[in-house]
Amino acid sequence: MEDTQVKSLKSAARRGGIISAAALSALALASCSAGQITQTSSQVAAVNGAEGNSEDGTVAVRDVTIIVDDAGEAALKFTAVNQDTTMTEHTLESIEVNGNDVQFDAAPLARGCTLVGDSAERLESTPQADGIGCIEYTETSLTNADFAVGGNAPVTFTFDSGEIEVFATISAPQLPAGSFVRGADQESGH
């Protein structure tokens, strides 16, 4: 009887030792990367476009992207928002992309109102929020200064309350869903 009790105690001690070793290993592995700063930890994905705020925080721009279509025509996609808590109207006075003027028309924005800019073609195909909230739409165009899709260019928004500077991604328009079908006999490119 003493022999079986000794064996089970040895077995329990071994299991406890194995569990402890596994726990310590997991803790050691988890602590290896603790406190490390990755190169991408502070980067914002380019998929959603660039964003910025005026220095005083009264206006903001979101989803800023330079769009270059198949014909080489360029437009600026963006959303500008008046977030001034003093209920003051603000006006977008000018936009420059890499020093070139962007053509657009915009009325002053009241507090909480949004201005959506994009190419004429994309605005036509985008569902618009008519009668919902305070959203205005404006067609944009600019000279294609040999923009390379996948690159970036500086964009400066000048409002009556200050400037916002961002680096925007240069992108081709997104294909409509289902518009491109790869045949089974084509190579996948992978």
Rank of each mutant, 00 (worst) to 15 (best):
L175Y: 13
Q103E: 07
N152G: 15
T156C: 12
Q186T: 15
A21G: 14
Q128G: 10
D130L: 09
I170Q: 01
D185M: 11
T138C: 12
T40Y: 08
R62G: 12
D56F: 11
R14D: 04
V59N: 03
G151D: 14
N82V: 06
A46I: 09
S94G: 08
T91Y: 04
F167W: 05
A74C: 10
V102W: 00
I66S: 03
K77H: 07
D146V: 12
D185E: 11
S179K: 11
A106E: 02
A153M: 04
S54L: 06
M87N: 13
F147G: 03
T79F: 01
A75Q: 00
A120Y: 06
L76F: 03
M1V: 09
T91W: 00
T126Q: 10
T85P: 06
A148L: 07
E121I: 01
S20I: 02
P154W: 06
G151K: 01
A60N: 12
T126Y: 04
S25I: 09
N53L: 08
G57I: 00
E165H: 09
V155K: 02
V149M: 04
L115V: 00
I37M: 11
E121P: 06
A153F: 02
A75T: 00
G131A: 08
Y137V: 07
V155T: 04
A34Q: 12
P154E: 12
C32L: 14
V155H: 03
R182I: 14
R122E: 01
N98R: 05
V6I: 10
E165K: 01
E93G: 13
T91P: 03
S179Q: 11
Q186P: 00
E163C: 13
I135D: 04
D3M: 11
E136P: 02
E136W: 01
L142I: 08
Q43L: 13
A145G: 12
Q36F: 05
V44Q: 14
I135M: 06
A168C: 09
S188F: 08
I132Q: 09
T91A: 09
S25Q: 14
D130S: 08
I19C: 15
F167A: 15
V149E: 06
S94I: 03
T140V: 05
A75D: 01
E2D: 13
L175K: 13
T143Y: 11
T140S: 11
K7C: 03
R122F: 00
I19T: 13
K77N: 11
S171F: 01
A184S: 15
T126C: 09
D70F: 10
A45L: 07
E124W: 00
S188R: 14
C32W: 07
M87G: 13
C113L: 02
K10A: 11
N100A: 15
A22K: 03
Q128E: 12
S11I: 08
A153S: 13
I37F: 08
I132V: 10
V61R: 00
Q5F: 12
E89Q: 12
P173W: 00
P108M: 06
P108F: 03
K77S: 13
M87V: 10
R14E: 05
D118P: 03
S8I: 02
T86D: 10
